[in-house]
């Protein structure tokens, strides 16, 4: 099953690239979802290879958490957009050193 593990690592890396390379908050968010899913894939493939259902339970919980995260995250994006009229994270460079 290390094939699916490798796949999950690749998906995670792609998500990582998306988080760093994207400038729009929503797209970054989508990349984060990609990363979460790659973690789920790893969990499920572990469950499969070890014959233990607990991995699937964890994946289930991760999905629930992702739903909560999406709710809050999208809320923040909307709120920021209201005050900034922009969803580009580069426009939020306020904490300048």
């Amino acid at each position: 099953m290390s094939y699916y593990l490798l796949l999950s690592a690749l998906l995670f890396a792609i998500g990582l690239y998306g988080v760093l390379a994207r400038r729009t908050a929503i797209l970054i968010f989508m990349s984060i979802e990609l990363m979460l899913n790659s973690a789920n894939l790893a969990l499920v493939s572990f469950a499969r290879s070890s014959g233990n259902l607990e991995g699937q339970v964890m994946a289930l919980l991760v999905i629930a958490l992702a739903a909560a995260e999406v709710a809050v995250g999208l809320g923040i994006i909307v709120a920021v957009f209201r005050s900034r009229e922009s969803t580009s994270v580069d426009d939020l460079a306020e904490f300048r050193g």
């Binding site: 760093l20 994270v89 300048r96 050193g97």
Partner: peptide, 18 residues
């Protein structure tokens, strides 16, 4: 020069974190 790293860009912070 180092303050440039703290330019406030989330993505720079993210890149550093990664």
């Amino acid at each position: 020069k180092l303050a440039w790293l703290q330019a406030g860009y989330v993505r720079v912070y993210g890149a550093l974190m990664v």
